[in-house]
């Protein structure tokens, strides 16, 4: 059903920034504030698109390439994950690898763009980002391998609709992927998107020097990343039928994504940021959960 998968991509493109709004609303609710409007992320992106840019004298072409390559990468990732049981346009055996690695490419260039500014703060953020993502990668791939073994498929579009949430191993994978999700998207307890001290940031500090349309691409890219990685978790948790009622499962999956955003908001409201040296431990824990799940599936 190619039309359905194209509609799915369009939905992702349209609704991704809404996730940020939901997270922020949830946090505002817990803090007893009104909070920013639900559509604030859209407004931010539009505002940035309208502005001119300022480049640091230190930077080179790499700095300008970073946001562009980042956005293009996450768009490819968007074409790989299925939504609500509908196969993605770029679905093939092994697509989960290009999914993981294209996000790696996005990170590679974000980090290079950060180093290109020559700022020690951005270097600091970059240094943390590469370590944490290197530890998150095995957790993600082993978790997906467990799902692959459970469903005897190597394509996200076949794996995710076929998996049932009821077995304990799938619960373990889900928890592991949730940890990876929070880490990859720079949320609490890994990184605080609202912090004001450059010294303690991870993701936010790396994009300090970007402005105008470049920054809009980055904002939009991270919203999409929140969307695509969320879809993997939702795909595991939510059953999906790809019959003629595909739009129902699509709607329920999107509802699930919004629910995930609420959970992220709750986590952010109730937890504090971890100390930086604790973060690797949490990621190793996620990896162990994935591996344990895989061993359970093996039996």
């Amino acid at each position: 059903m190619p039309i359905a998968s194209i509609i799915n991509i369009c939905l992702g493109l349209l609704l991704a920034p809404l996730l940020l709004g939901i997270i922020n609303k949830t946090k505002a609710f817990f803090a007893g504030r009104t909070g920013q409007p639900l559509f604030q992320a859209y407004l931010d992106i539009i505002k940035q698109l309208r502005k001119g840019v300022v480049y640091s004298q230190t930077t080179s072409l790499i700095f300008r390439a970073g946001p562009v390559i980042g956005l293009a990468s996450v768009l490819i990732a968007l074409a790989i994950v299925p939504l609500g049981g509908v196969a993605a346009p770029l679905a093939f055996s092994g697509d989960l690898l290009i999914f993981a690695y294209i996000l790696g490419l996005m990170r590679f260039f974000t980090v290079l763009a950060a180093l290109d500014t020559g700022s020690s703060f951005e270097g600091m953020g970059a240094s943390r980002e590469v370590l944490f993502s290197a530890l998150a990668e095995p957790a993600l791939l082993i978790g997906l391998a467990a799902i692959a073994r459970e469903t005897h498929a190597m394509s996200l579009s076949q794996m995710l609709p076929a998996v049932s949430f009821l077995s304990p191993e799938v619960v373990l994978v889900t928890v592991a992927l949730l940890i990876v999700y929070l880490c990859e998207n720079a949320r609490i307890p890994f990184d605080d998107p609202n912090t004001h001290l450059e010294l303690t940031m991870i993701h936010e500090v790396m994009v300090l020097d970007h402005s105008g349309p470049d920054f809009a691409f980055i904002l939009y890219g991270s919203a999409l990343k929140l969307w695509v990685l969320g879809l993997v978790i939702i795909g595991i948790v939510f059953p999906a039928s790809s019959g003629s009622f595909w739009f129902i499962s699509v709607i329920s999956a999107i509802g699930g994504l919004f629910f995930l955003a609420v959970i992220v908001g709750i986590i952010e409201s109730t937890m504090a940021r971890l100390r930086l040296i604790r973060i690797p431990q949490l990621l190793v824990a996620a990896g162990s959960l994935s591996l344990f799940a895989f061993i359970l599936v093996l039996r």
Binding site: A100, F108, D116, S133, A134
Partner: peptide, 25 residues
């Protein structure tokens, strides 16, 4: 699989360092 994933992530760390520090800034 785990090894390849970890090596991939660490190699990216290493080459952002090598390229970033030598050629950028």
């Amino acid at each position: 699989i785990a090894g390849l994933a970890l090596i991939g992530g660490l190699a990216a760390a290493c080459f952002t360092k090598a390229f970033g520090i030598v050629f950028l800034g």
